[in-house]
């Protein structure tokens, strides 16, 4: 069974952390992954940087620009991750925009992911119907779970459709925003979380965008299987470097 599905079966709320590969330094990738696992994080999203990350706010944009300047590419990332499964067992997801994957070749990309032991992908600008019509078979052939986003504006019909195509979890974007723009959840968001909860979807939901501390993490996981932290972690790394990851994780969970 895919590591993501296994993890989702565990009887606990999941903490997933996003980081931008190649940031702050080009060679930090594996040590960040190992540290995150060691400190009890449940799942990792490895950000493959892109020049024009439309769905991201300033923090992740800046880290992506920096990572590209540092020399990060798809090939470099795959090389860094080559032996990652010798040291970690945590579910690994690559999050990136479609164009770099498209240039690599979707089949070649998926194949490489499988070889390395990547479990899933999040590609915000690959729409669900294009995925379904053109790429689903390839993803499945290589045992990859593709994760789709929903937002407060997504209609119930579309959520059900996305649910029917998903086979891992649904990434619930907390509000109409790019990454990193929220500072807490109000009534509007909690009623959206509740509404989705009541839909009894086949796939569990994990909430992301705007989770930054213990309070927002606790709030979000009241309504969902887990939560994803991105910008707040990138900021932490920017300010404090990569040696105090344990401190960051503790601040979220305790």
């Amino acid at each position: 069974m895919n590591r993501i599905n296994q993890k989702l079966k565990e009887d606990k709320k999941l903490l997933s952390i996003y980081f931008t590969a190649g940031y702050p330094n080009i060679d930090d990738t594996t040590s960040i992954i190992q540290d995150l696992e060691k400190n009890g994080v449940d799942m990792i999203e490895i950000g493959l940087p892109f020049s024009d990350p439309l769905a991201d706010g300033p923090t992740i944009q800046d880290s992506s620009t920096k990572a590209l300047k540092n020399g990060m590419t798809t090939d470099v990332l795959f090389t860094q991750l080559k032996d990652i499964r010798k040291t970690v067992n945590i579910p690994l997801i690559i999050m990136g925009y479609f164009n770099p994957m498209f240039q690599y070749g979707i089949e070649a990309f998926c194949k490489k992911c499988q070889e390395i032991g990547i479990d899933g992908l999040i590609i915000p600008d690959l729409p669900v119907d294009v995925y379904h019509e053109e790429y689903q078979a390839i993803f499945e052939k290589y045992g990859l779970i593709n994760v789709f986003l929903i937002t407060p504006q997504t209609s119930d019909d579309r959520i059900r459709y996305i649910d029917s195509i998903s086979n891992g979890f649904i990434y619930m974007v907390s509000s109409a925003s790019t990454t990193g723009t929220q500072s807490g959840f109000g009534n509007e968001q909690t009623s959206y979380f509740k509404r989705i909860g009541k839909m009894n979807l086949n796939n569990p939901q994990i909430i992301g965008f705007g989770i930054s501390n213990n309070q927002t993490f606790t709030q979000a996981t009241q309504y969902a299987k887990g939560a994803i932290i991105g910008s707040a972690f990138v900021k932490h790394v920017t300010n404090e470097g990569i040696d105090t990851i344990g401190k960051f994780v503790d601040s979220i969970c305790n």
Binding site: L54, L126, P127, F148, T151, Q153, S155
Partner: peptide, 11 residues
């Protein structure tokens, strides 16, 4: 062509 947009823009 097509519409390769994040779900946030779909509606």
């Amino acid at each position: 062509g097509g519409a390769f947009i994040p779900e946030m823009l779909y509606p």
